[in-house]
Amino acid sequence: MRRKTMLRLGGALISLLTVGGVVVMLLPYFWMVSSSIKTGIEVFDLPIKWIPDEIQWVNYPNALSKGAFGVYFYNSFVVAFAVMAGNLVFCTLAGYGLAKFRFRHRELCFRLILSTLMLPLEIVLVPTFLVVRELGLVNTYGGLIAPLAVDAFGVFLMRQSIRDIPDSLIEAARMDGCSEFGIFWRIILPNCKPALGALALLAFRDNWDQFLWPFIVATTDDLKTFPLGLAQMEGIDSAAYHEIMALAVLGMIPAAFIFLFFQRAFVRGITLTGLKE
């Protein structure tokens, strides 16, 4: 009897902790949304009014007019989708090759690819810039996209997930008359959708977000991405918090959308990966 009450009390406490955690994790976002619909003075009002008396939708058009945000959003989309596509294609191909074929130096290839996790762009910034410059890609979409188009983590994720597809499916397809690429397209891809979803989500998030690389390689205004635009606007008008928050809300929407779209696939994709070995 006592034990049972104790247990239930403990359970309730843990649930409370869980919910409290959610609040801590999400509070900044609530505050962001709330501030984005206040006036520049109201944002610092005390006590905090989470929903202002008069909602200032006008912050949004005002904020957008403070820079070429149409262009910045467009550029971010281009980069995010192109990099996502590159990742989906190349990481999946490589993951398939590493998971299901035997060839000389396969393990070496895998290790080489994994080792690039230690060479993030932040570290090879200077020489990568020089390579891109050498290729004549400075201030082009190609230059923005190309260095990011393959990511070792993506290869790892896809390899793990494809390894779980039984070999016999591939062999059955081979006997059914499928070409090797046909097997990839018709058998492998449809059977690793969760991992593809996880990869798509992460690639989109990380590259919708690209800041450092565009910051280095895109110096003209028409190639700036949204984060650059926002940082620039913030630099000029750092006191206009209500408008900065409005832009932040807008910047959050695409990734949030992608997340909601892929979230089931995402959690399953990571779960399936299971990180065996």
Binding site: A231, E234, A255, A256, F259
Partner: peptide, 17 residues
């Protein structure tokens, strides 16, 4: 898990504030 989707720049702006 929702915050996984948040952009770094959004995070930076919100926290600066």
């Amino acid at each position: 898990f929702f915050p996984i989707a948040m952009s770094q720049i959004v995070v930076a702006m919100v926290w600066k504030f």
